[in-house]
């Protein structure tokens, strides 16, 4: 009998704080049994820059600029199952606090009114991604298959979710593992 093929997982953080990734690391020594079952594609853990075909994609953070859209699309194109992880990915979260401000006044305040930044002009280097006028949750840009709520979701919740998925079960967090804040 051939050895069971390992699942490929990719992870990324968009308009997030990497808190969900830190929480992912909170599965601690369970990383070892996890690595028996999966291998990582694009992820801050591997430093691979672009993701190839994967089974599972974990995306933290919302969508605040054009680059976020490109990365999210790349994930959607390559991942069979795409998971929005954490409050920012699901609702926009903290970065979406800017949504009640006009982008014009944000940029003016930061680059033109306040002294000492960028020599008094709004950066326009084509290398820099342009900000969207509002911060959006992931599911408004691509189809998302699963959502893990929490800010951040606990390591236990992430562990339960992934092991369920890997075992082929519909993930269920249940009482104690679901947190909305």
């Amino acid at each position: 009998m051939t050895e069971k093929k390992k699942l490929r997982i990719a992870t990324t953080s968009l308009a997030g704080c990497f808190g969900c990734h830190m929480s992912f690391l909170d599965i601690d020594e369970r990383l070892f049994p996890l690595l028996e079952l999966v291998e990582f594609d694009r992820s801050p853990l591997t430093d691979i820059k672009h993701c190839g075909p994967c089974d599972i994609g974990l995306v933290e953070g919302g969508i605040c600029n054009a680059e976020n859209v490109h990365v999210l699309r790349e994930f959607r194109k390559n991942c069979k199952i795409l998971i929005a992880i954490g409050a920012c990915a699901i609702n926009g979260g903290l970065p979406a606090q800017r949504n009640h401000l006009d982008l014009r006044s944000c940029l003016t305040e930061v680059y033109l009114t306040e002294p000492g930044l960028a020599h008094g002009h709004i950066p326009n280097d084509p290398e820099l991604p342009l900000p969207l006028d509002k911060v959006h949750p992931l599911h408004e840009v691509v189809k998302i298959d699963y959502f893990i709520p929490g800010c951040p979701p606990s390591g236990d919740a992430i562990w339960k979710f992934l092991t369920d998925l890997i075992a082929g079960k519909t993930p269920e967090l249940g009482f104690g593992l679901i947190e909305y804040d």
């Binding site: 054009a66 959006h136 691509v142 189809k143």
Partner: peptide, 20 residues
């Protein structure tokens, strides 16, 4: 699947502000 809003339109304000 379709995004819930006009993605390119959402960059218009930033294009205007940066002149890009």
């Amino acid at each position: 699947f379709e995004p819930a809003f006009d993605l390119d339109g959402a960059l218009a304000r930033a294009r205007q502000m940066t002149g890009r």
